[in-house]
């Protein structure tokens, strides 16, 4: 860190890096980017985009519960993790054990969670101002501190480990669960595990890009990668790259140009830009096959 500070002050690196919180957010972006991009490929493959959305919204309720239980409101991690984990698992359990269609199920859970969150928040508004909600929903890099980074490191490590170990099996489970079971894959266990992974990475990302927008980062870079790639290798690495670039650019550019947008919003805009460009490329390839592989 002191090295970076000196470099920043002497003009080698962007000046804003001399602030700890900027440095912290960039480190967070460099870790979060690839992890979200990678998990995003699974989210898109398994068609669980809206599941992730529901978990993002549950984070708001988790924060509310944390405040009411007395956790510091800039990092109510215990409640966040506990509530979101139980919430995610409950969704999977309900999906497996009832005949509700997935989108009805998600809608029900989303609404119940929001309602609980809103009611609790009414009680705690004496303690907290509206900006806390803002930060939870859209991220606030200004408040990223060491605790957040540590949480992010640990969670990312867990996700990377589980992701790499179970990737193939998770994809196969979504293609044909019966076939997966015959091949010895524990389909139900992996279902829960995957939702768990999405939940914990969402919670870890709440500070930086906000609860609502984590889902966007899980889906948009993967969708952009899908436009460009011809095999899984391209799919995965493009997705991780787009995601990382979106995070870094979305954090650095508004700060350098002093545009006061929330980091989450900027990141998603960059990701959307990539999506638009790759969609255009794909269309061009279709229309003019001679272009081949650009």
């Amino acid at each position: 860190m002191p090295v970076v500070q000196r470099l920043a002050e002497s003009g080698w690196l962007p000046e804003s890096l001399k602030y700890a919180f900027v440095f912290n957010s960039l480190v967070a972006a460099l870790i979060l980017g690839p992890v979200l991009g990678g998990i995003g490929t699974l989210v898109v493959t398994k068609r669980l985009a809206f599941f992730s959305q529901a978990i993002g919204n549950a984070a708001l309720t988790g924060v509310a519960i944390g405040i009411i239980l007395g956790e510091p409101y800039t990092s109510p991690y215990v409640s966040l993790f506990s509530f979101c984990i139980i919430f995610g698992m409950a969704m999977v359990f309900t999906k497996n054990r009832t005949k509700m269609t997935t989108d009805t199920l998600i809608a029900v859970f989303l609404c119940i969670s929001l309602a609980i969150g809103a009611c609790i928040l009414l009680y705690v508004t004496a303690k907290v101002n509206v900006h806390v909600l803002d930060n939870v929903l859209f991220g606030s890099i200004l408040t990223v501190n060491e605790l957040d980074l540590n949480v992010l490191f640990v969670i990312s490590f867990i996700c990377i480990f589980c992701g790499l170990r179970f990737y193939n099996r998770m994809v196969l489970s979504s293609f044909n669960p019966n076939l997966a079971r015959v091949r010895g894959i524990k389909v139900i266990f992996l279902e829960y595990l995957f939702i768990l992974m999405v939940t914990i990475i969402t919670v870890a990302s709440v500070k930086i890009i906000g609860a609502i927008l984590v889902e966007a980062l899980l889906v948009i870079p993967a969708a952009s990668a899908r436009n460009l790639s011809r095999s899984m290798r391209g799919f995965f690495f493009y997705s991780a790259t787009f995601s990382t670039l979106s995070c870094v650019i979305g954090i650095v550019v508004p700060m350098e140009l002093e545009i006061p947008v929330p980091s989450g919003g900027a990141i998603i805009l960059v990701a959307a830009f990539f999506f638009a460009v790759t969609t255009a490329i794909r269309w061009l390839r279709r229309a003019y096959p001679a272009l081949g592989k650009i």
Partner: peptide, 14 residues
């Protein structure tokens, strides 16, 4: 086991 179908998004680059 040879199943009848695989259920997946046809645009996936796999």
């Amino acid at each position: 086991y040879v199943p009848q179908v695989l259920d997946f998004d046809r645009t996936l680059p796999i």
